[in-house]
């Protein structure tokens, strides 16, 4: 089993749960790397649930982590982006469960998950620009969810969304009462049966790449990915099952 410095982790059935809430610093990034390596190499779980506490989903980037007496460099931000991209590609179905503040780094993290479920009290905001820096690669991902105009409202004007607005804008997939969050996760997991993990991984990759390349290039990517899916052992089993029914 894995040991983490600041985050909590447990597995039950086919669901792994990562407990966040801590401000983002070097220790959090290290824990997230440990979790990703464990999920990729050893874990039998099919689903990863990322949860905060009642106050916040995940803390913002801690300004005190920067030492003003020394020249700042970019490498810490690069490490953060690398681990977000790792979570985005991890071969598990990922669900962010959001209560309270989902601001800055928290929203950046929520955007790399496959699904976002929020309680009515959840609030969404990217406050980095008002604090003098940039909201990471949320600048790359956000507009794909909500469109460029709305992304400007969040990133440039620092607009805060409540849960209902966030759902209407497409930032959140479901809003459910706080006491119903566990049930909502359970029914999402139950409805989502991992028939072929390879198909999930490839479909997600294609969707993520869909905004950046031409149709002519994309069709080649799709054919390569589809070939991998239909030649997987799991797809063969599903095919035989379909024939025997």
């Amino acid at each position: 089993m894995l040991t983490l410095d600041v985050l909590g982790y447990e597995e039950q059935g086919n669901v792994a749960t990562l407990q966040l809430g801590h401000p983002v610093d070097v220790a959090v990034i290290r824990d997230l790397q440990t979790v990703c390596a464990y999920l990729e190499d050893e874990s039998k779980s099919d689903v990863l649930v990322l949860r905060g506490n009642a106050e916040r989903f995940c803390g913002e980037i801690d300004m005190r982590a920067f030492d003003p007496s020394r020249p700042l460099d970019i490498h810490g931000f690069h490490k953060w982006e690398k681990v977000l991209s790792w979570i985005e590609r991890i071969p598990k179905f990922t669900i962010a469960v959001i209560r309270g503040r989902c601001v800055g780094a928290g929203l950046q993290l929520a955007l790399v998950c496959d699904q976002r479920i929020a309680a009515p009290g959840a609030r969404f905001r990217l406050d980095e620009v008002s604090r003098g820096f940039l909201p990471g690669m949320a600048t790359f991902r956000l507009a794909k969810y909500i469109g460029l105009g709305r992304a400007r409202s969040l990133v440039l004007a620092g607009k805060q969304l409540d849960a209902v607005e966030a759902e209407r804008w497409g930032l959140v997939d479901q809003v459910v009462p706080a006491e119903g969050l566990d049930a909502a996760v359970s029914s999402l997991v139950a409805a989502w049966t991992p028939e072929n993990a390879i198909a999930l991984e490839l479909a997600r990759r294609l969707l993520n790449e869909s905004y950046s390349i031409q149709y002519e290039e994309f069709i080649g990517n799709f054919l390569a990915a589809q070939h991998r899916a239909i030649t997987s052992e799991r797809f063969m089993e599903l095919l035989k099952k379909a024939h025997s029914e």
Binding site: G220, N221, A224, R228
Partner: peptide, 10 residues
């Protein structure tokens, strides 16, 4: 192109 795509996705 297609061989490279195939390696990438596999």
């Amino acid at each position: 192109r297609k061989v490279i795509d195939s390696v990438k996705y596999n």
